[in-house]
Nucleic acid binder design. Structure first.
Length: 263
DNA sequence: ATGGTTGGTTACCAA
């Protein structure tokens, strides 16, 4: 099975890019974040026409929003809330074969990495804690699960262009990394992208719009992740980050992360 | 140290 995750930064603006991606890459399931569309505005017709008839979504006006765009049947759809807000940051479903796929959009967290000065940072920390609490209550290490999404945290030294310069920049601060690592270790999640790329190698999935030439400056971060639980580890076969899509016309600032896996 | 760009909505907020 081929699973992809992509922060699309408005699914309506970029629906043609989504369809082009589906045609070129042929994923079984594409997980989107930041769809920024209410459910009645979701551009479902183009996706059905492309063969992705099992498409589910959870959106709100202007902000957030997640979707599973699938050409295989999905069962037991869930939309959960974390950190005490009714925002649309999670959707999950069971894949053929029984593995459960969770798609998350973790809050970005604002600019100041201090929850006393910036409640958005507090919300982000609470959200990641909430994820850990949820999996502690509802899941086990033995369950075959795939967790994907824009986690808005780049945990490893070479997940950012400069470890030193980003230590106090939201997305790479020690407290965020600690919470994400705690979530990861709790159920023994395997980082599928890093499974195929040494930790010493730079690996990014996001480049800011605020650079004259994103490729030349290459100030990227790996904010988008695909994790699997241990029962699925032996099935991992290939993982890619489609960096070249950052050069597509009117691109998202994120590019897709893709995994091929036996489930 | 600062500002740089984009999207949704339509005054700025969020990323």
């Amino acid at each position: 099975m081929k699973i992809a995750t992509w922060n699309i930064n408005s699914v309506r603006l970029r629906i043609n890019n989504v369809v082009r991606f589906l045609e070129v890459e042929q994923p079984d399931v594409l997980c989107l974040q930041e769809t920024k569309a209410q459910d009645h505005d979701f551009p479902i017709t183009a996706l059905h026409a492309a063969g992705y008839t099992h498409t589910i979504f959870s959106g709100e006006k202007s902000y957030n929003g997640v979707a599973l765009i699938s050409r295989v049947p999905l069962k037991n759809v869930q939309k959960n809330e974390f950190a005490g807000k009714q925002d649309k940051r999670h959707i999950s479903a069971e894949l053929p074969g029984g593995a459960v796929l969770h798609n998350f959009y973790v809050p970005a967290g604002g600019d100041i990495p201090d929850r006393n000065q910036n409640e958005k940072f507090g919300h982000k920390l609470d959200f990641v804690d909430g994820m850990r609490g949820w999996f502690g209550k509802h899941a086990s290490k033995k369950a075959p699960m795939i967790l994907v999404g824009d986690l808005n945290i780049a945990p490893l030294e070479h997940d950012v262009w400069s470890h030193k310069q980003l230590l106090d920049v939201v997305s790479h601060t020690p407290i965020e990394v600690e919470k994400l690592t705690s979530l990861q270790e709790h159920l023994g999640w395997v980082d599928a992208s890093r499974h195929f790329v040494p930790h010493s190698e730079k690996l990014y999935s996001w480049w800011s719009y605020r650079n004259q030439d994103w490729k030349k400056s290459d100030r990227g971060r790996r904010l988008d992740h695909i994790w699997v639980t241990e029962p699925l580890q032996k099935g991992l076969s290939k993982s890619t980050i489609l960096k070249e899509m950052r050069d597509w016309e009117q691109p998202s600032d994120h590019v897709p992360v893709v995994l091929e896996i036996a489930v």
